[in-house]
């Protein structure tokens, strides 16, 4: 009896693995192998066309003495700390507004979602012109509001304003997050609101005690994904600064510097060690978020 079961089990296992074999092969060739190879290269001097030479931890040691590495870490942290919560906040507000029962709601929802299907490069070029200090719409608007000339931002031409410019731009692409919130909002039980109405709760109280707790798993998910996305921020900065990360390194983000090392200076080993540092940083922060999540996430009464 026992043996027959294990034979079936084994057969099932074999069949299952066979069915999975394309994806297993794909994952190992295109994901597992590159990941492991990058770990190996991070301990090598590897100019790409010549064979890698093992140099031990030398790349990591150089990295910790590289001032640009710290600048890029600072830029990325700055962006993540501001862009992520601002993005979530804007998305949440939009979702609340778009959850009202108003005429033409489908149209409004589409309007706010459209920016997230615009390709990132196209969006960046568009914003480059919106943010243009002399001819851009945003500064024209500020001028028409009689903002004094010396307070008009230089946006991407000014190292103080370049990161805020990118953060401002990031709020334009919150459509995806907004959609997740919108779906979440429609799952909040209506009877709870009715009960709260009977008890005479204000809308703020309803928001704080019903909506937000029910939305907390969604907020948590988008926070983690938003943080990971911000830590890997690359395309917009690359396009809007022509790949330089200027002015004065103010938009040289971690991934941009990594790219420059790999493909402009051909220091693939150095770039790989940067990639591993980034991986570890993201891993630690995500673990931290998960560890603390139990305190503020409500999964419909389940632990």
């Amino acid at each position: 009896m026992k043996t027959t079961k294990s034979t079936t089990d084994r057969q099932n296992l074999r069949n299952g693995l066979l069915f999975c074999s394309p994806i297993i092969m794909g994952l190992s060739v295109f994901t597992l192998y590159p990941v492991l190879a990058s770990l190996y290269y991070s301990f090598c001097n590897y100019p790409m066309l010549k064979p890698p030479v093992w140099v031990g931890i030398s790349n990591y040691r150089t990295l910790f003495h590289d001032p640009v590495f710290y600048t890029s870490l600072y830029n990325t942290a700055y962006y993540a700390i501001f862009a992520t919560p601002i993005g979530l906040g804007v998305a949440f507000l939009l979702a609340l507004l778009l959850n009202q029962k108003v005429k033409g709601m489908a149209l409004f929802r589409t309007m706010f979602f459209v920016p997230s299907i615009v390709p990132m490069v196209a969006g960046s070029v568009l914003w480059l012109w919106l943010l243009n200090p002399q001819y851009g719409l945003i500064n024209s608007l500020l001028i028409s509001m009689h903002v004094p000339a010396n307070l008009i931002p230089g946006w991407m031409a000014d190292p103080l304003w370049s990161k805020p410019a990118l953060i401002l731009m990031s709020t334009w692409g919150v459509g995806g997050t907004m959609l997740i919130y919108l779906a979440g909002l429609q799952d909040v039980p209506v009877d709870l609101y009715e009960a709260a109405d009977i008890d005479g709760a204000t809308s703020l109280q309803k928001m704080w005690n019903i909506t937000i707790p029910f939305m907390s798993p969604h907020i948590f998910f988008t926070l983690v994904m938003g943080f990971i996305g911000a830590a890997q921020y690359f395309t917009q900065a690359f396009v809007m600064t022509g790949g330089t990360g200027g002015p004065v390194d103010s938009t040289r983000f971690f991934s941009l510097y990594l790219f420059q090392n790999a493909f402009q200076y051909w220091k693939m080993g150095y770039a790989c060690s940067m990639a591993w540092i980034l991986f570890i940083v993201i891993l630690l922060f995500t673990l931290l978020l998960f560890k603390t999540s139990a305190r503020y996430i409500y999964y419909g009464g389940e632990k």
Partner: peptide, 10 residues
């Protein structure tokens, strides 16, 4: 420099 770069970005 900010003014010059603002000028040239257009």
């Amino acid at each position: 420099v900010t003014k010059i770069n603002a000028f040239s970005s257009g």
